[in-house]
């Protein structure tokens, strides 16, 4: 869906659902998912419909993901860090996730 203009920035290694994803410094988690072609980042707690980042500016809460074990974080506000583990979310979370 998206391609990088140039490989600016330093390579940052994160995992998404256990798989390695090559991100760049300056990426947010949501941007890294989009750049990696990951189609959706969660399913909704109401009907289980797939959702992907929508606004990229912190207002729509579609890009909610679990980051380093903490659930429902806004991926578009979290800069990637080396070694970060990201999990896509499905439906209702376990309490505390």
């Amino acid at each position: 869906m998206f391609k990088r203009l140039a490989d600016a920035g330093v390579a940052v290694a994160i995992t998404v659902d256990g798989k390695h994803v090559g991100a760049r410094s300056g990426d947010t988690v949501a941007a890294a998912l989009i750049a990696a072609g990951i189609d959706h980042c969660r399913t909704t707690p109401v009907t289980g419909a797939p959702r992907a980042p929508y606004c990229l500016m912190g207002v729509c809460f579609e890009c909610l993901v679990t980051i380093d074990g903490v659930g429902s974080r806004q991926g578009c506000l979290a800069p990637v860090r080396d070694g970060m583990t990201v999990e896509t979310q499905s439906g209702k979370r376990e309490a505390g996730r």
Partner: peptide
């Protein structure tokens, strides 16, 4: 998925060069 706000796409361009 695949529908995004234009502002979102602009953010990806400005901040990540996508």
């Amino acid at each position: 998925p695949g529908v995004m706000s234009a502002g979102g796409a602009q953010t990806l361009l400005k901040a990540q060069g996508l």
